[in-house]
Amino acid sequence: MSGTTGNVIEITGLSKRFTTGRGGQRRSVDALVDVTLTVADGSCLAVVGESGSGKTTLARILVGLEGADAGQVVLAGRPVAQRPRRAERRARARDIQMVFQDPNGSLNRRRTAGSAISEVLTAHHRVRGAELRRRVDDLLDQVGLLPAHARALPGELSGGQRQRVAIARALAAEPRVLVLDEAVAALDVSVQAQVLNLLAELRRVRRLTYLFITHDLSVVRQVSEQVVVMRRGEIIERGSTERVLDQPQHPYTMLLRDSAPRPGWRPRRALGRGEPRAEDMEAAR
């Protein structure tokens, strides 16, 4: 158990490289470079970064959808396999679950919301019949939906409702950790607030640990206690959310913060007129 350290996630020296193309066009990208981090039991760690920062790769390795090239992941006190087999993934799924960004693709459009939840329930628990239905209703209730929503197809639900079903599905495995990959990014502002409140409430009631992946610093401020800032596969700054957002040390963190629209904010050129930005030059190469 994680009792000795109080950390439910311990990641050490995690690296991952992707190779794309064939033959002469072969190129490789370092998605993760020697990433080390810990997440305390019951806390929320925000992982902040822009596209290409490696934040999604980190999430996928953590839940077992991807294998790492090097490094170690200790989940709830147990080291997890680098190249997860099916049985290993199933065991891991009871510790950690993931909520994805896309509210349109997060549910099978031909199956009801209820069946999405019961699929996970039956995968991990011996439940069937009336007991299964009761558990599905119970989970729907916890995410603010009604039993009738169980019979709805994804197309009959709004984006916010679909994301609530996706959260209920993740909770069905009774995990200790939820990985939320831009889980509120695609939602309307008014719905986003509802889901953020729901997530906060669930964390409190179920004593969950969150790994909250986002590009949105306002969301980071609202949900997390700790934050790591990632850029091109590396963690470039870490610390308490207040410290990192109020007194950022790394120039990139400062740039991120200064780029976030807020009252009184003006957009500005990072480096003034006519100067190249590293990202653009890289893409042009």
Binding site: G159, Q161, Q192, A193, L196, N197, A200, Q222, L245, R262
Partner: peptide, 18 residues
């Protein structure tokens, strides 16, 4: 209902429904 960059609230004010 938009979270703030500079302050937190225990719960965000919400508009019910969609």
């Amino acid at each position: 209902s938009r979270p703030s960059l500079t302050a937190t609230t225990p719960t965000l004010p919400v508009i019910p429904g969609r």
